[in-house]
């Protein structure tokens, strides 16, 4: 079973269109949604969660249309956590115990201790990192099969980000567990994800296994004329320099004579976004 199946998702606002997004997150995998601010990552996530209505298309989560009961199986972390500022960890634990049918106090307490979160301090007095850790503790304490995380690492220091990434990797050790995570900190996603989906200006530019992307797309350095002679579909993005032009190309579509070097997901994202602009 797939954790998420999106088919032809279309949603329009004033001046923005999420255009025919189709992607599949297989169960047991981690998919990273990459895109610049305003690309449509949060709109996609909100549509999956049923927070936004969409004009066209279909979304299946854990094999079902979104419904309230299904949300017991989904752990959600939003970029702004959304917990009442006056409450403390104990209060929040009490509320969640009565909201989620499969809530585990043991898991919650374990994560609270692991994250060294103070039990009696007001949530409003927490740092951004502590707030995010509490949101992750909640998401992981009701036996969720799928985590949906919208920019969970933005605004956090590298140490906390690394800690969170380790916890997410641990979550997917169970092969039924899947994660959809959006971020514009591409290096985090590169460490974490099996699949990368790249959204740019409301369009899905690519959705592929990370290892396949890193194998398929390569850097070449050549003159601009040489690059212009290549198959148009081969060039995913280029940067014209004073002495040579650097391009990211589809290795399968260029002559073998070119010397290539590896790319990172961040390079791919930046070059493709610039090419589209």
């Amino acid at each position: 079973m797939n954790a998420i199946e999106i088919k032809d998702l279309t949603k329009e606002y004033d001046g923005f269109k999420l255009d025919n997004i189709s992607l599949v997150l297989p169960s047991g995998c981690i998919m990273g949604l990459i895109g610049e601010n305003g690309a449509g990552k949060s709109t996609t996530i909100n549509s999956i969660l049923g927070l936004k209505k969409y004009k066209k298309g279909s979304i299946k989560v854990l094999g079902q249309d979104m419904n309230a009961k299904l949300k017991n199986d989904i752990g959600v972390v939003l970029d702004e956590v959304g917990l009442p500022e006056a409450l403390n960890v104990k209060n929040i634990g009490t509320i969640m115990r009565n909201v989620y049918s499969n809530w585990s106090d043991d898991d919650f307490n374990r994560y609270i201790n692991k994250f060294s979160l103070p039990e009696n301090k007001k949530f409003g007095d927490f740092s951004k990192g502590m707030k995010m850790k509490l949101a992750i503790a909640i998401a992981l304490s009701h036996n969720a099969k799928l985590l949906i995380l919208d920019e969970p690492t933005s605004g956090l220091d590298p140490l906390v980000r690394d800690e969170i990434i380790d916890i997410l990797i641990e979550f997917t050790r169970d092969e039924d567990h899947s994660i959809l995570i959006s971020s514009h900190i591409v290096s985090d996603l590169e460490k974490l994800c099996d699949y990368i989906a790249f959204i740019h200006k409301g369009k899905l530019m690519l959705c592929e296994e990370k290892d396949v992307l890193l194998e398929r797309y390569r850097f070449i350095s050549a003159t601009e004329e040489q690059i212009n002679e290549l198959d148009h579909d081969a060039v995913k993005g280029k940067k014209v320099g004073k002495f040579s032009t650097e391009a990211i190309v589809d290795q399968e579509l260029i002559p073998e004579s070119f010397r290539t070097s590896p790319v990172t997901i961040e390079d791919l994202f930046v070059f493709m976004a610039k090419e589209e602009n």
């Binding site: 969660l49 049923g50 927070l51 309230a68 009961k69 299904l70 949300k71 017991n72 989904i74 959600v76 939003l78 702004e80 956590v81 959304g82 917990l83 009442p84 500022e85 909201v99 989620y100 049918s101 409003g124």
Partner: peptide, 12 residues
């Protein structure tokens, strides 16, 4: 606090 957003992600 954006609770009105977060609560809609819960099974309610």
């Amino acid at each position: 606090s954006r609770w009105n957003f977060y609560v809609q992600c819960m099974p309610v």
